[in-house]
């Protein structure tokens, strides 16, 4: 969609019905996404192993959080038209008419500039550049280009969600070595099985909005196969921190055991008929799961737990000074 169309789309969003409260602007920043980004960014910053002044470390995490929030606001501005068509998103401030599109755009642009400039001044310009790239990638490459164009949208766009630990690492050291990219790769490879498992039982919503999610484009069977392939690549990748001096024995145990469960759930999903059932009752809630899609829900839920455990273990090991195994390097 061209920028002029986007502006006209933004202009077509519902007229503001109720006065915007400050909480509506906070909602534009996607606080739940911010909390995940804070967690992974903090893990990168701590795993870097470089002593950073606690105040500057706090500023770095704040900048990552605000940058993520800014890209969320830009996303909500541009996607107001499709958000209005989906049950999951129709209550967002812009499609619900509580905030004008132009105000969401202004908030996103201003917060992007503030977060990048503060990161550059307080930490270093490599971290600031990576933060600016991440905002650009999510707001422009993913939101404007990929999301409405290709079923690979969340695969490529997943890079934006995978970069915060790299930014955290860069903020602490001014460099981005292999271990920082391993953290990035883990989140990047986690994204497709996570989102496609969800889309197997929410694809009706995306269909209404015309968003080409994988189950709609390639079908449920192909999606289940691709989820299995990504899971086969993702789970061994989670063990690599043990080889490169990043993860210790606790991490090895969590990654190996969790990886086995992840694979088991992916195989069960592959063998299931999740996503095949087309009929859906009108009174179904958005996240109500049809019988065949239970396996998709299980993998989706476990994927969140597994990624959280991986990063929490790395964070805990580094904070407690557990010696990494360093089996390869």
């Amino acid at each position: 969609m061209a920028m002029s169309e986007a502006l006209s789309t933004a202009a077509k969003t519902p007229a503001v019905r109720a006065p915007a409260r400050w909480q509506d602007f906070l909602q534009l920043l996607k606080p739940r996404v911010m909390s995940l980004v804070v967690f992974t960014g903090l893990t990168g910053l701590v795993c870097a192993g470089q002593p950073v002044h606690p105040f500057l470390a706090g500023v770095a995490i704040l900048c990552i959080a605000v940058g993520a929030g800014a890209s969320g606001a830009l996303n909500m501005w541009y996607d107001a038209d499709i958000d209005a068509k989906m049950r999951r998103t129709r209550g967002r401030p812009v499609p619900a008419g509580r905030v004008q599109g132009a105000d969401a755009l202004a908030l996103g642009v201003v917060l992007s500039m503030f977060s990048v400039m503060l990161m550059g001044m307080a930490l270093n310009w490599l971290a600031a550049g990576l933060l600016a790239f991440t905002i650009f990638f999510y707001a422009v490459v993913y939101t404007v280009w990929l999301k409405r164009w290709t079923a690979q949208n969340i695969v490529i766009g997943g890079l934006a969600g995978a970069l915060p630990p790299v930014i955290g690492w860069a903020a602490a050291t001014g460099t981005v070595p292999l271990n920082a990219w391993i953290l990035c790769a883990i989140i990047f490879m986690w994204t497709p099985p996570h989102f496609w498992a969800l889309s197997l039982y929410t694809s009706e919503d995306y269909k209404k909005a015309g968003v080409p999610m994988m189950p709609l484009v390639a079908g449920a069977k192909s999606t289940r196969k691709q989820i299995l392939i990504y899971s086969l690549l993702f789970t061994p990748l989670c063990l690599t921190p043990v080889l490169t001096g990043l993860g210790g024995p606790v991490y090895l145990a969590v990654a190996a055991l969790g990886g086995l469960v992840f694979l088991l759930l992916a195989v069960r999903l592959f063998r299931s008929r999740a996503g095949d059932a087309q009929a859906q009752r009108k009174d179904d809630g958005l996240y109500d799961v049809k019988a065949g899609a239970k396996d998709a829900r299980n993998l989706f839920a476990f994927s969140i737990l597994y990624l959280t455990l991986l990063f929490a273990t790395l964070l805990g090991e580094h904070l407690m000074g557990v010696k990494p195994l360093d089996l390869l390097l």
Binding site: F55, V59, F114, M121, A122
Partner: peptide, 13 residues
């Protein structure tokens, strides 16, 4: 908050 942040960052650096 932004003004205070910039001030303290300056002092720290």
């Amino acid at each position: 908050i932004f003004v205070v942040l910039v001030f303290v960052v300056t002092i720290v650096k």
